[in-house]
Design a protein around this nucleic acid. Structure first.
Lengths: 189, 189
DNA sequence: ACCTGAACACCGTTCAAGT
DNA sequence: ACCTGAACACCGTTCAAGT
């Protein structure tokens, strides 16, 4: 006699994400997730093969969420403004979901497909600025900087004080300029 | 009647570092460390308050090691060459100690003092290039990029192929240029 | 067909007892 | 003074038994 399903994979992943943000990765236990979705821990193994797989699913959900936010920064007429807007959206996402953000770039759980989708708007804008030949390297320069900045900000590695908001804007401005093809001369502000 | 000491904190931290690189952070267990230094797990608590504290000590040791490498990139006459050299040394360190590298910027275990020492050579070179007014923001731009690039390289986030060595050199070159004070015009190659 | 309690192996940590 | 075995609480995971 079939038993009705008492939870869903969607609920499990959502519970995992909530626990990740509230209690950190070590608080994302099978028992805590089970309790949150109203089931016993062994039942989770009907939907998920292991805790590691659940963590990967959570990481994927975070990446998808980020992709939605970045995708909503629709292309305006000025690619420099769009780039700045993407950077700021990226940062506000990291600050709103610090644990999820860290998980995105943690050792395992690459979520490469979802990551490619999430970064697509950046590729598009950087291609406009840098031209197709340097689009890939330019996008890597930009995303590496943004990711590094946020990971250091979140981990408290910027210990020398100073204004982090200003440092972030400084980076946006200088990178936007650095992305222009090498030969072209500087535009006027 | 005193018992002779059968291990030392130094040995424990070294064992922790070795386990971290060989088996990952989850392989850095108190039992594995104890076995490696020839003692039982409870004895570790004579030198270390908790596993978390041991992890912080390991992170500190990694940062110190990195600082030594970067410090060895002595100042030549050309700050641009020095900056490139620092960036390459940074990358080769990350590739040689991937797990330790990740741990440096993980959530807890900031090791702020050691980190400040490690980054001192970068501050010095960037000050030469960018001038004192923009030294801090410039150093943050540079370290954020390098850290982000390496963290993404290690986690496999650069999934679109392409030559990562070239992308890294591209970043070095463009950033070096971007660090120059905004008013000054481009030098000839 | 899904859920559960019981069980296993493993881990961090404490502590009384050894020397 | 340092080391140890035993013990506790907790965790991931398996599985036979329930419905």
């Amino acid at each position: 006699m079939p038993t009705p399903e008492r939870t869903t994979l969607t609920d499990i992943v959502r519970a995992g994400r909530e626990l990740l943000e509230s209690d950190g990765l070590s608080g994302l236990t099978m028992q805590a997730v089970a309790e949150r979705v109203g089931v016993r821990a062994p039942s989770l193994y009907k939907r998920v093969n292991s805790r590691d797989e659940l963590i990967a699913l959570v990481a994927n959900a975070v990446v998808d969420d980020l992709g939605t936010r970045l995708g909503a920064v629709a292309g305006g007429s000025d690619p420099y403004r769009d780039l700045a807007e993407l950077a700021r959206e990226f940062r506000s996402f990291a600050q709103a979901h610090p644990a999820g953000y860290r998980l995105m770039f943690a050792s395992t759980a690459p979520a490469t497909d979802a990551l490619a989708r999430a970064v697509a708007p950046v590729m598009r804008v950087v291609t406009e600025i840098a031209g197709p030949d340097e689009a890939l390297e330019g996008a890597r320069l930009f995303t590496a900087w943004a990711n590094g900045f946020l990971s250091m900000e979140l981990s408290g590695a910027f210990h020398l004080g100073g204004d982090l908001d200003r440092a972030y804007e400084f980076g946006i401005e200088r990178l936007a300029r650095a992305l222009r093809p090498a030969g072209r001369s500087r535009r006027r502000a």
